[in-house]
Every structure is written in structure tokens, then in C-alpha cells.
Design a protein around this nucleic acid. Structure first.
Lengths: 236, 236, 236, 236
DNA sequence: CACTAAGCGAGACGGTACGTCGAGTCTTCCG
DNA sequence: CGGAAGACTCGACGTACCGTCTCGCTTAGTG
């Protein structure tokens, strides 16, 4: 659970610089005795909240390190000590907030209802502050390689894994049979595509009809794809 | 065909100075004959190309008005005279370049092949410079209201109309019957969603399998939705 | 009566061959055929007044060619056609306005009263718009060679001549004898020095006592300097 | 001795942060101990010298904040941090340089010689860089209220006090009696008027004869004004 | 307990870009 | 040709943040 991509991040959790960068790993334990005060958790939270608030209030460009520091009542250098950019801060925010909001709550009910509920949850997520953060980061990632990479290898990868797990469970409950990985992968894109498309491109929650239709289609496809002729499996 | 969202835009295309300053609004067309030198088209193009190049080379944040002016070999003030921001310039770029790349070329062939070809064209578009521009603008629009609005009411609205027309034609050719508007609308989102999702979120071209599957699903749905029992119709 | 120091100035006067510079007076009327409309006198006045007004309202830096043109309701290029800078315009203004305000009105009364009246007139001049113009130009001349030169060789030289004439007349009436040039010159500086000093340095009208004292001193000095022993004569 | 009219000025000379931000005015002296790096004196001097040099080389209009910053090898923002305009900088320059150049060096010799020496010193001052600065500021003050005010309430007031002290000392030595304030004041204007007049209006050092004559007149007047009938006292 | 390494607030500094203003030149069209 | 209109280049304005740095205080282990 790397909440910060910053170099110093680990120092917060582990007092003795541990797995950091492998190279200067040698004479570490001996030399670095690490005295002095610990990183203030309240500062960390103040910064994350300040960033979040500013993003919601003023948009991505309205978020500045100086603004965050000012609003968090913290010195600029303190921010730079722990994060290397505002993107870095927002990634932390995301990690803290988004996981729960996008979790698959496996209700025991019927698969279709559960799937629709999950879609509605995701659609709602984009309206919340944490959703704004994701949108901002995805937006920035469109033209910033570093952000794209960090998102892809961090939050997006993990989220996709959670989604795959969740969706597979639903599909298997629905079809009563195991569903192969590639199929789930494709179906996940079919499922999420229209949702993200509406959120990111049309800046509007998808119509309930679209959500329902999508959910039904996916379940339908799972049944059919999964059927007798397995050679028809789709891919990524 | 507003290629510039700037106040003066119309003067270029329309000879009669339109929405300029509101005060002397009266006897306009007659009195103000607009003397003096005309806007230089070569400068306009130089600026659009400079912006495009910089975007591709350095990303959205690497695009600055000063940078554009410098690369276009033009004074900064000249840029500000015609565009009010870099977003405004990129919107112009988009209008000039994207329409063609996303046009539905109605091949007489079978509907499925045509649909797949169109999807492939769109997927390819995101790899081109003009696609980069769209991605950048969509990205910026995530947290900038003004950009979001301009995109939505300009390029996106027009493009969606063209897409609706194109998709309807394909569907009707495929089903052999007229297809109601709401259905086309929903199907368009089903069709484009996964595509945009892959491009914007995963920064990767969608797998051919996904494209094919999506195309097939949509045609399939059109047939079924369109069928005898009209109560099953999907919506926006 | 050089109303404009601009290169193009002749074009105006050549049209109406006037009293301008005496040298090229010959082949004037014959050679210059001069077609097209004549320079508009109303525009000239509009520009001068606009400049004057702006100076009084906004100070020297508030005077801009564009501002003048706008207020005069004239195209910028028209201003540039006839004057080469705002200084040039203000010099014109000065020539038109200041002469009268600073004229020595030879009252037949006693010399001391006349001198004091003249001093009061000069002191009052600095409060008027034309006085503002002179102050502005003198101010600018402190660090601008071209302005300094133009002022010195134009208005200041002429004004000093008029002052010398006026003062000599007064002194001779007072002493009843001719007064040598160098003496008048020195006394003029003694007379005007404190006045200009108060106006330019302390930005305040000189106290009446100072004016009176100065006037009396100068008359006194004229009597004494002028006296039997000529070795005591002062110089430039 | 305020060498800078800028808000932060006091922090340099006085250790206790003075008039900075008004809000946390309470427990000031105790709590806010002003940490962080101190203002760089070398930068301050580099800026003042750069301004001075540019003024001499290029005139008042040739002095720009950007030019100063560039020549001083300093970031523009650093200049703006400490001075709010180029006038502000020049005022600082003046305070640093002019005082000494215009000081009354009380030689024990006879009063007339001392007075003449002082006049010659002042005349010489206008030829030096610091004199250029004063001329430039006086020039600018002709049409800029803020500059006029700053000069009047700062340098000019202080200098006039020093001059009054110096002149009174000379006069009292000369006459052997105390000289009343109003008399000294008037005589100072009589003394300096022609000098400043020559420097500011005619841009030329006053003729030695004028200096000598002025010095003699003033001493003469002091003797006479000061004489038996005290009702004759002059004023400002 | 003193030492010392960090955390931290404060802010100076060199930069880059912003968006605006005016200067002065040039171009086009009208009368 | 005079003049209106205004496009254009250029230079400076004053501002906002950037990211780095230096100071001096405070705080918590460790020796």
C-alpha cells in the first residue's frame, strides 16, 4: 500500500530505511541511527485534505503546492520534503479515498441486481471528491507520461484487479460455471467503458437505462460466450 | 463552422463584423465596412501547427502561449489577439483536423465490416497528433469547466451528431428497418465507450478482439432491440 | 512660429507658405504642387488639446500616443504623420499657449510694482495647464537629451530673449540708465532662480515675501552694480 | 534614515519585524522571531548600482526593472520583493549617495569662502551620478504625484534641514549674531534658487560669477536684514 | 543529560510564463 | 493623398508559482 510515490515515503512507516532503493543498501543499518522527531501524521492529512479541497474548489490548475501549503498551514518545504509534486499528493489522496468507494460489496442477492448496484456506485463515485481526484489525474495523464505511468502501475492496476475479482464472482454466480480470465477482462471493459466514457467525455452520469442495458448485456454475453463452443472467447 | 471560439472569429469567415463590441450594435452591417489589413491566414496556420507540434513533443503543460508564439515566429500579442488561451488554440486545431479523421466513410459493403473499420479508424485516431489534441482537451476538461463546456458544445456535439448519422445508417442497412433515435444513442455509447475507455484510461489501443466483439454486440443488440416487442427499447 | 518640430512639419506650412523658417523661402510657391486634401487644422487642434488634457489629468506617463489619438478621435497613424513623439506634441502645445502667459506687459507704472507683477504672473503660470506642460517637458528633459535640446533651442531660448528684453526695460526705467547685457543676464537668473526652484523642486508657489524680496534685491543690485565703479559688474 | 520606502525596509535595519502584516499584530516581539535567510546586502547594492549605471547611461526611461535585474544579475521578482518601482530604487540610491556629496563641511575659514565652496560643491554634484539621480527624480516628480510626495517628505525635507543648519552656521559666523529661522529659510531659497535653476532649466553649471554674486548677496542680505530694524524679516 | 539529527516554519532567491499595455510600423480601404 | 481602421512586432510591465536553498527553532531518540 504505497501511499506516496515519493522517495521518502517509506521513512514514514519504517523508521529504519528499509527496502528503499536497493543500491546503497549496504552500510545502512550501521550508519543511519535516525534520531529526531517523526513525520507528523496530522501534517500529512492536512496536506491531503487541502489538496483535495483545492481540487474540488478550483480545478487541477487551481491546485498549487504553495496553495496547498498555505491552506494546510504548513511550510512549503515541508510539502516538498514528502511529495515531489502535486500529482504525487493527489495520488496519495486517491489511494486513501478511492478504494472503499469502488469496492465490490458482494451482496448475496441475485447477480444482476448486484452488478447494477456496483455500476451505480461507480457512477456515483465520479460525483464525489475522490472521483474528482481520479478524473483530474486521468486528465493529467492524458499528456503527462509520468502521471500516466504512476497511475497505471499504481491505482489503476490495483483497481482493475479488484474489479476483475468482483466481476468474476458475479459472473460465476450468474452462470454457475467458472469464467476464464480473458473473458472477464473483455467483459470488464465492455462493462466499464460506457461508464467511464460518459463520465470523462460527456461529463454526465450515464442514463440509468444505459447502466441497466450494459449490465444485462454483460451477463448475457457471459452466458453465451461461456457456452458450449469455448473457442469463441474474446480477449483484452 | 466556428473554428475559433475567440470573439473575432467570425470576422474571418463572415465579412460582416458580427458579435464584436456590443455598444455600437445599431446600424452595423451598413456602417462598419471594416477597412485595414486582413487577418493573416498564414499566421493562423503557423500558430495552429506550432501548438500541435508542441503538444505532441512536450505534452499539455509544455504548450505555452509564449512557446507557441516563438515557434510560430509570431509576436505573443498576435496570438492573444485571436485566441484567448492555449485551449482556444487547441480547439481550433481540433476543428481543423479531427473531422476528417473521424468521418464515417460509408462503404457499400456489409454493415459489420464497415462498423469494424470505423472502430479501427477511431482507435487509430488516438495515436495521431489530432488524437493527442483531443485527449489533451478531454484531459483538461476533467477539471476545467470552461474547457469542458467549449468541448461539449462545440466539437463533441458535432462529432456525436456525425456519429449518430453514421451509426444509424449502418444499423438500418444491417437490420433492414428504421432504428429509433434513442436506441441509436444508447448503442453509440455502448460502441464508443470501450474504445474511449481504453484510450483515455488505459492509454492503449483496444485489443482487436474487443473491437470486434463490441461491433458484433451492437449489431446484435440493434436486431434484438428493434424486434417485435418494442417495450424492451433502451434509452439515452 | 515653429509649431511642430517634426520632420514632416514643412508639409503643412508649405501648403500654406507661411512665415516658417526663412532659409528655404525662395522657390516655395512654385515648386510644391501639393495635390490631395490639406492637413486638417481641426485635427491638429484636437490632438493638442487631447494631449494637454491627458497631461493634466494623468501626468506625463499617462500621456500616450494611443490615448491622444483615441481622445482626439483620430487614427494613431495620423498622429504619427505629423509628430514624431508625445514630446513633440507637447512642445507644440507649449508654443501655442505659453508665450502669452509669460509676456512682459509693460505697465507704465513704477518699476518695482511691474517687476513684482511679472513675478506673480510667472508663479501663477505654473499652476495653469500650460505651466504643467512646461514642467512636464522640463522634467522629461532632465534625463532625455533630445527633449533637453529641443526645449533649450526652442522655447527656452525664445522665452529667455523675451525675458531679457522685458527685464532690461524695467531695470532701465528704474535706474534711469542703460544696463549692460551681462548684468541683465545674471540678474535674470537671480530673479527667476528662486521662482523656478520653488516650482520645480518644492512643488509650491513661492511665498509672496520671497517674490517681493527677490524683486527688491534685483532692482537694488541693478542700481549698485550699475553704479560709478564698473569693475564690480557681474557676469553670466 | 529610511533608505527604502518599501514595506520590508525596516526588517533590514531593525531586527524586530515591524509593520509587516497587520493581522497577527498581538504577541509580536516575543513570538515571531523571524527565521529563515536574511536579505542579501550584496544584492541590494548590486541593484542600486545597476539602477544608477543605467540611469547615467540611458536616461530615466532607459531604466527598467527588467534591465536593472538583468544587469544586477538578479531575478526580477527579487527586485519587486524589496522595491515597488524604479522610483523607489532611485530614492534608495539617492539616500545612499547624496547625503555626503551635499554635506556642509564647516571649514573654520571665513564665511564667504566657505559659502562659495559649498555652492561649488552643489554645482558639482549635479554633474555626478548621484546628481543625475536627483535630477531624474525631480524631473519625474514634475508629473508624478507619488514621486513628488516621496521626494518632498524624504530626501528633500532632510536635505533642506541640513542646508538650513549649515547656512545658519555660516551666517551667524559672518554676522556675529543669531539669525532668525524665517530669514535663513528665505536666504536659502535665494541661495539655491539660481543654482537649481541653472541645473534643471538650462542644464548647465552656473557661471562662477553667478555663484560668487549669489554668495555675496546672501551674506550681504543677512547683514542688512539682521540689522537694527527687525521688522523687515522675510519669510519662506 | 547532553548531543545531534531530523522535522518544521519562514521566506529569500533564480526562474518561467502569464496576460496586458503601449510603441512604432505597415497594410488596406474609403473619400 | 489624407485619414480611419487595425494587424503586426517588440519590449516591458507587474504577478503567480515553481523548485531550491538557507536559517533558526523545536523535538526526540541515542550515547
Amino acid at each position: 500500500m504505497p501511499e506516496s510515490t515519493c522517495r521518502n515515503a517509506h521513512e514514514r512507516t519504517i523508521a529504519i530505511p528499509a527496502d528503499r532503493n536497493a543500491e546503497p543498501a549496504a552500510s545502512r543499518t550501521a550508519v543511519v541511527s535516525r534520531t529526531g522527531p517523526k513525520r507528523s501524521e496530522s501534517i500529512r492529512l492536512a496536506v491531503l485534505h487541502a489538496a483535495d479541497d483545492l481540487l474540488v474548489e478550483r480545478g487541477f490548475n487551481g491546485v498549487t503546492i504553495e496553495g496547498i501549503a498555505a491552506r494546510a498551514g504548513v511550510a512549503k518545504q515541508t510539502v516538498y520534503r514528502w511529495w515531489k509534486s502535486k500529482v504525487d499528493i493527489l495520488l496519495d489522496t486517491l489511494a486513501d479515498d478511492a478504494r472503499d468507494a469502488l469496492a465490490w460489496r458482494g451482496g448475496g442477492e441475485d447477480a444482476e441486481a448486484e452488478l447494477k448496484a456496483q455500476l451505480r456506485r461507480i457512477a456515483g463515485f465520479f460525483q464525489q471528491p475522490a472521483g474528482q481526484v481520479l478524473r483530474a489525474l486521468l486528465g493529467h495523464a492524458q499528456t503527462d507520461q509520468a502521471t500516466a505511468r504512476a497511475l497505471r502501475e499504481g491505482f489503476l492496476r490495483e483497481q482493475r484487479e479488484r474489479d476483475l475479482l468482483g466481476l468474476r464472482a458475479v459472473l460465476e454466480r450468474h452462470t454457475g460455471r467458472p469464467v476464464p480470465e480473458p473473458t472477464v477482462d473483455t467483459l470488464l471493459s465492455v462493462l466499464l467503458g460506457p461508464l467511464y466514457y460518459q463520465a470523462l467525455v460527456h461529463d454526465a452520469p450515464p442514463a440509468p437505462e444505459l447502466l441497466d442495458a450494459t449490465a444485462r448485456h454483460v451477463l448475457d454475453l457471459a452466458v453465451r460466450t461461456d457456452a458450449p463452443k469455448p473457442g469463441q472467447a474474446a480477449a483484452t
